[in-house]
Design a protein around this nucleic acid. Structure first.
Length: 542
RNA sequence: GGCGGGUUGGCGGAGAGGUUACGCAGCGGAUUGCAAAUCCGUGAAGACCGGUUCGAUUCCGGUACCCGCCUCCA
């Protein structure tokens, strides 16, 4: 049996993972607050814990793993959005508008995360469906002296739990010292945090022993994990930014409400995502959602396949900050294209290769797993490559949409064949100048040309066209031929690629308009075809 | 101020106290009339200063710089 080792934030050590019950391995991951599209940073824990989920399923059996990821659907940002809609004239009560908003956001989330190849968890509880459990838990905390009610609020008495701060390595006194903690008249201690707060008429609320109100942020995860996974479960995951205060507060609540349970045995935190070396933020203009990337609605302009996003994420260990760059995405795409091409007719091995399983078992070393896949690729072992990739959620049929091979989007055009026939004739007779000129024209038209000893093949592919023209422009620029570089830039623009020639080179070129590419191809292929036929008719081939 | 992460070759990015990371790019070669593609091979590193050691990029201490959290945040 494979031994999985995981870094536990609680102990700061990599430990052997021993499930509480190997018949039912339980994992809880903090999910999104559903007020808007998921941004790229939201995708990191989804992908990281999806790989862990797949690994656990592989080791313990798919039916022996329970994965819970919540939706936070009660939150001030949701309320604000619903209120904004109401004020903009949308019909319905505020509750209905909130419901509408969360419903559509959850649907987006599912669509976007599906596109990244993430499996759906076994349970995706919504906070609003567990209000009763939260109230029950809060009542218990009051009864045992760990919480108190004041002015319609209920607060957790942080000083009553001596383990507070252990997860994040802080002491309560240090935190108060230099910290910006919200001081409120109803707090006994500035560190105390809200379990329940009152709602006025234009906010969603539920009846409770403390009046109409809504839960604080942290209590939902404690209530839902307890309900679905029990007092003790195996793994609790989330972003490192949740370590404090969210997870610290969760532990305090759960430990005090269920003193006989261990709550989560292993805490795992993924590091943050950066964009081109900086934190993603709206003010820096480097903020984008997963959907923006998928749809090409970002600075790169390229429709990034979900599989490419996934690959980029897996190439950095989850415990390190990960920098999203277009360069990485391009490399990932090239690698995936190569792997998909070489495994086009392969069948995956029955079980994943040991190299990949042991890499993942070593604290989820996804990068090492990818290195193993590179090796299988080099060795030409398509079966192992596919089976290993599957464990990472890569090279799966679900994520294959972007990859076109053979008949699907590659244009096989009778004119290409005709030109190639003439070229082969020319080559046989030693008319290399003619043959090579035609080849160069074909390449410029977006036809990938492959010459063999006595034959030649070629096909039109929009993506090839874009890459070819841009690489020609770069080559000319590097050779100091600005005029030629400009010519290729102009051609690329005509072919639907957004590209500019700047002082420091050819600007980032990515997405392209396929319709423009086909129109471009149509225009040039007919010219080349005409010219080729003329050469043949006039007997220039000797 | 407190807590945490990081600094590796042109770029990305791992592991290991002494032996090739790997990928991309580069270079060389095979193949080809020439390209492309493919295959084979290959140079190049460990922020800085000390210490431990026969030997450290890998362990320990310090310095510098970068980043995150401490307020909603994955």
């Amino acid at each position: 049996m494979t031994t999985i080792r995981l870094r536990n934030t609680k102990t700061r050590k990599v430990e052997e993972f021993v499930p509480i019950d190997r018949e039912n391995v339980r994992m809880y991951v903090c999910g999104p607050t559903v007020y808007d599209r998921a941004h790229l940073g939201n995708a990191r824990p989804v992908i990281v814990f999806d790989v862990l989920y797949r690994l656990l399923r592989h080791v313990y059996g798919a039916e022996h793993v329970t994965y819970v990821r919540n939706f936070t659907d009660v939150d001030d940002k949701i309320n604000a959005e619903a209120l904004r809609r109401q004020q903009a004239g949308a019909p319905g009560t505020i509750e209905e508008l909130i419901h509408q908003r969360t419903e559509e956001t959850i649907a987006w989330y599912h669509a976007d995360m599906d596109a990244l190849g993430a499996l759906r968890p076994n349970h995706e509880p919504r906070a609003t469906d567990y209000i009763g459990q939260m109230i029950g838990m809060i009542e218990g905390l009051i009864a045992s002296g760990h919480a108190y009610a004041r002015d319609g609020h209920v607060l957790f008495r942080v000083r009553s739990y001596k383990g507070y701060g252990r997860l994040s390595g802080r002491s309560v006194d240090d935190m108060i010292a230099g910290a910006r903690v919200e001081v409120a008249p109803f707090k006994e201690d500035p560190m105390d945090f809200v379990l329940w707060k009152p709602s006025d008429a234009d906010l969603p609320g539920w009846d409770s022993p403390w009046g109409r109100g809504r839960p604080g942020w942290h209590i939902e995860c404690s209530a839902m994990s307890h309900e679905l996974l029990g007092e003790s479960f195996d793994i609790h995951g989330g972003g490192i930014d949740l370590q404090f205060p969210h997870h610290e507060n969760e532990i305090a609540q759960s430990a005090c409400a269920h003193p006989h349970g261990d709550f989560a045995k292993v805490w795992m935190h993924n590091e943050m995502l950066m964009v081109e070396g900086k934190k993603m933020s709206k003010s820096l203009g480097n903020f984008f959602t997963v959907r923006d990337l998928l749809d090409g609605n970002w600075s790169g302009g390229w429709k990034v396949p979900g599989e490419v996003i996934r690959f980029v994420f897996l190439s950095t260990h989850y415990s390190k900050p990960m920098d999203w760059t277009e360069e990485k995405a391009r490399q990932a795409e090239a690698t995936l294209r190569k792997w998909r091409t070489m495994t086009f007719r392969s069948k995956p091995d029955v079980s994943p290769p040991i190299e990949v399983v042991s890499a993942l078992s070593d604290d989820m070393n996804t990068h090492a797993a990818l290195t193993a896949l590179h090796r299988f690729s080099r060795l030409g072992n398509g079966g192992a490559l596919l089976a290993g990739a599957k464990l990472l959620g890569l090279l799966t049929p679900e994520l294959s949409d972007w990859f076109r091979f053979g008949e699907k989007s590659v244009a096989e055009d009778p004119r290409i064949d005709a030109i190639q026939d003439i070229r082969v004739m020319a080559r046989k007779r030693g008319n290399y100048a003619i043959s090579d000129q035609m080849r160069s024209d074909l390449l410029d038209a977006g036809v990938a040309v492959f010459d063999y000893k006595d034959s030649s093949t070629g096909y039109f592919e929009p993506d090839f066209l874009a890459r070819w023209l841009v690489s020609k422009a770069w080559a000319a620029f590097k050779a100091g031929d600005r005029e030629k570089a400009q010519k290729y830039v102009d051609l690329a623009r005509e072919a639907g690629v957004s590209v500019h020639l700047e002082d420091d080179g050819v600007s980032a070129v990515t997405g392209h308009d396929e319709q423009a590419a086909f129109a471009y191809f149509e225009k040039y292929i007919s010219l080349i075809h005409e010219r080729a036929c003329k050469i043949l008719q006039k007997g220039y081939l000797k």
